[in-house]
Amino acid sequence: MRSDAEEEFAEFVRARQHALVRFGYLLTGDRMAAEDLTQTALARLYLKWDTIRQAGAMEAWVRRVMVNEHTSWWRRAWRRRETVDFDATHLADRTASTDPGPVSPDDSLWQHVLRLPPRQRAAVALRYYEDLSEAQTAEVLGCSIGTVKSQTHRALATLRSRLAEVPA
């Protein structure tokens, strides 16, 4: 028999899991990795459920964990740029999946998005998919509004540049 906390947690998961998996897919570009990332974040949420629930910002907290957890994957890849180990290859396979996902009206732009550095990609996802404000995005990313602006600006500049190089 489930406890009240467990029921509340289950209710939250059922209500938000699809949106969180989509966010995870945007971060990772891979459906399996997205679910794994979401599950990891939800597991951490459950551990701190009472505290986070009282603060009333469960979803923002989960997204923040997802961003940081994913950036940690990427930081391990950064680390591996120096050591160039085989796990990096595995990671690249994982993050640049062959999983086509849903059909896209603009696959080239999507591919360019997936090639953005993780924090820039997260900023773009939150601003242009979740429609969050700069302040809300800063809260999720755990950084200043100025950093959100620079991350987003840099990402858009990169996308514009790449779209100009390879016309869609």
Partner: peptide
Amino acid sequence: LAETLHGQLDGLNASSDLT
């Protein structure tokens, strides 16, 4: 960009209950 993100993601759901 916004259209692309929605096109890629709007139909995507979790494969099962993650609870």
